[in-house]
Amino acid sequence: MKFSDETLMAYADDELDPPTRAAVEAAMAADPELARRVARHKELRNQLRSAFDKVLDEPVPDRLIATARTAPADRRADNVIPLRRKSAPRWSWPQLGSIAASLVVGAILGQLLLRASITGPIIARDGQLLASGALAHALSNQLASDQAQQAPVRLGVSFRSKSGEYCRTFLLREPSALAGVACRGREQWRVQVLAQSGQAAADGGQYRPAGSALPRLVLQAVDEQIAGEPLDASGEAAARSRDWRH
């Protein structure tokens, strides 16, 4: 049987299917010239490999490591919401990014509920967590595009969920730093997700790539629930004027 040079090369590169491979081996056994051609292909491969493998032993220049760790990244890679929209709410994901968050486990939530007075931000009723007091007020009235720097609640992104409700992300500064998502039910804002953040205040809006994992749980919830794009400033204002009802 005759084999093209490309087939012999593919044999040397271990790219042939088993039948062709067996045929080449049988032919090589019978034809020393064929075996020699294959050996040359393998030898070249080894030669190239050993010449460039030396690079692996060199220390990687610091500037490359620094670039990998600090060069600006596409924010979309940090999960969830494509930030393609034209007019983003002013409290953007990067700010949220400065909050190291973790899942609120029962103990934390219990503490929060115990500490919260009757006018506390979150109450439990009929097996649901509902926004109350300052949080409920902010969810209903505060626009992300227009909020005081030191407001006790900061609103993030507002969006329509797949079930058609309006939902908003929030950051509570008191009594402890909590980030979450609340959706507007018929009468109340239901708290869907709550995550504790390690740090109460956003850091002045600077995007900090290092150590700034977003509150994953919150982002994942948004990602799972969002229908379409987040509301822009005018969409947010229009939703508020309808009292967040669809």
């Binding site: 692996l56 490359l64 760790r69 890679a77 150590g211």
Partner: peptide, 19 residues
């Protein structure tokens, strides 16, 4: 993967990328 994870994966790939 979150961006920090990606950055470290790229750092791990640097020897091969350089080669």
């Amino acid at each position: 993967a979150p961006i920090e994870e990606l950055r470290e994966q790229i750092v791990g790939l640097l020897p091969r990328l350089r080669r």
